[in-house]
Design a protein around this nucleic acid. Structure first.
Lengths: 138, 138
DNA sequence: GTTTATGTACAACAATGTTGCAAAAATGCA
DNA sequence: TGCATTTTTGCAACATTGTTGTACATAAAC
């Protein structure tokens, strides 16, 4: 499917109106094919309003289009959710790799290992690995 | 060992000077025995300077006294490192549980499951679980 | 006690994120 | 297509969070 149609479908399926800003943000994610920090998105979409961008990202996060990647650096990073995510049944189990050298954060396809703790009810699991990515380790 | 002596030893072993602010922060962590957000620490130590507190927390993080817990909420939370951590050989593998009900973040003693990704060099692993904690699930 | 290195307090700044509201645009329907 | 409704945007203003520079104060070492 053409990229624009795909983006339109994603927005429609979440009952989000198709606006230039939203399409631009999603198009940027598909084009880069990687996780993006707010800073990177802002630099790409220089002429757009900061508040609008925050609202777009929040809407996307709430509706399972993007997921926020926890990071202790304070720099919030977003990644595209897999096609299986939707507003009701959002798959929160993600595994990410942050390269200590180049700083890139990648979404890994591997499944987060199952963990159970007696007495606790685990609903989501986020595994953040740090080290050297494929290109930096080589 | 008495708490104050313990705190003094921790600071000395990191070559950090023993000051009122640092002792207060550490004493608060030992007293609560749990992870603390910057907000909580600020509320406890109302009369202390905000900048000083940030510098204390940064010094503690850099020297393996505390560890920063990644969280997508933006609220930075700190936890006491285990006794095995020191400035040179800081054990970065942590497992945390965040309760979606009461918001508390707990450090779990369980070991983070080993994960390896072909071509990557994994140095740290952070597993963040979310759900209902023991008291909220009951 | 005196010296020296380190840490603190204050002011000012920078970055990040939020709220309220009027104007604009997207959708649905006649 | 044109109109009504609802959602989204853009702007201003504010709130929170974190940083930098610098003079002063304190801890550690002698």
């Amino acid at each position: 499917m053409a990229r624009y149609s795909k983006i339109k479908n994603i927005l429609k399926s979440r009952n989000l109106r198709i606006t230039d800003g939203r399409v631009d943000v999603l198009e940027f994610f598909f084009r880069k094919g990687k996780t993006l920090s707010i800073k990177e998105i802002q630099e790409e979409l220089k002429d757009s309003d900061r508040v609008t961008l925050y609202r777009i990202l929040n809407a996307f996060t709430e509706n399972g289009v993007l997921h926020k990647i926890p990071d202790d650096s304070g720099q919030v990073t977003f990644g595209l959710c897999h096609d299986t995510c939707d507003a009701e049944d959002h798959n929160h189990d993600h595994m990410h790799f942050k390269c200590l050298d180049c700083g890139t954060i990648e979404c890994l396809e591997q499944q987060v290992p199952e963990v159970s703790i007696p007495g606790y009810q685990v609903k989501e699991a986020n595994l953040i690995l740090k080290g050297l990515c494929k290109s930096c380790a080589a």
